[in-house]
């Protein structure tokens, strides 16, 4: 995975780069808007990490220009601006996620992976969390290398949860995947489907956890993220 880090603070830039490399990311680091644009011309990146306050311009301009050029590369904004309206401004400009400083490397890496797991993004074809791996192309899942027997509906649920691993997925988003199966959706169809998926994963010895967030949705936690 190749990342472009645009950060003008020399120490922070080197710390982020050195922190991400052990997480299996290749990181190119530039300090100005001009250098960033040069880098994007000569190389293709899977993800942009953009600091907002740069010496020769605003990082949001990179985001806007990139979106105007129909560039679909996921963008994660790293910023010291934590004002009430800053997050909305950043997301409105076309950023995919927004991380306010100070942050820690594991969180940054998790967010990067979440963006890369999106459909169409670089990690979008094979999703993994803990010992669970799902191949989006063949619509099959395995736990610790052993294939599990799951219905297409459960595979779809697992895919959505894996793409957002570590994050809560709202019920409507999950229900949409059931509707997409043309199945009859009863009020507790989602609960039933999640319950079956959970049992199947547990039976196969998966180390991930599918947790219920009452009134909101469900979240899949890999063992390292759940903090145990």
């Amino acid at each position: 995975m190749r990342l472009l880090l645009i950060e003008d603070n020399a120490r922070l830039g080197s710390l982020v780069r050195d922190g991400l490399i052990p997480q299996c990311f290749a990181v190119d680091w530039v300090e100005t808007v001009e250098d960033a644009e040069l880098a994007m011309k000569v190389a293709t990146y899977d993800l942009l990490l953009v600091d907002l306050g740069l010496p020769d311009g605003d990082g949001l301009d990179i985001v806007r220009r990139s979106r105007r050029d129909k560039n679909a590369t996921p963008i994660l904004v790293l910023t010291a601006r934590g004002g009430l309206d800053d997050r909305v401004t950043g997301l409105d400009a076309g950023a995919d996620d927004y991380l306010v400083k100070p942050f820690q490397i594991p969180e940054l890496a998790a967010r990067c992976r979440a963006l890369l797991r999106r459909p169409g993004a670089s990690l979008g074809t094979q999703l993994a969390a803990g010992n669970v791996v799902l191949d989006c192309a063949s619509r099959s899942a395995d736990v610790g290398g052993v294939a599990i027997d799951a219905t297409p509906r459960e595979i779809n649920l697992l895919e959505v949860l894996l793409r957002r691993a570590g994050h809560v997925v709202a019920k409507p988003a999950l229900e949409n995947t059931l509707y997409a199966m043309d199945a009859e959706v009863t009020p507790n169809a989602l609960e039933a489907a999640v319950s079956r998926l959970r049992k199947r994963l547990t039976a196969a010895g998966a180390d991930v956890q599918v947790r219920t967030v009452h009134g909101v949705g469900y979240a899949l936690f890999a063992p390292s993220v759940s903090g145990e």
Partner: peptide, 17 residues
């Protein structure tokens, strides 16, 4: 915010190492 957050980030990331 900007002035404080960046050095705090550096401090935290340096401590992690």
């Amino acid at each position: 915010a900007h002035e404080l957050r960046t050095p705090l980030s550096i401090m935290q990331l340096s401590l992690d190492r």
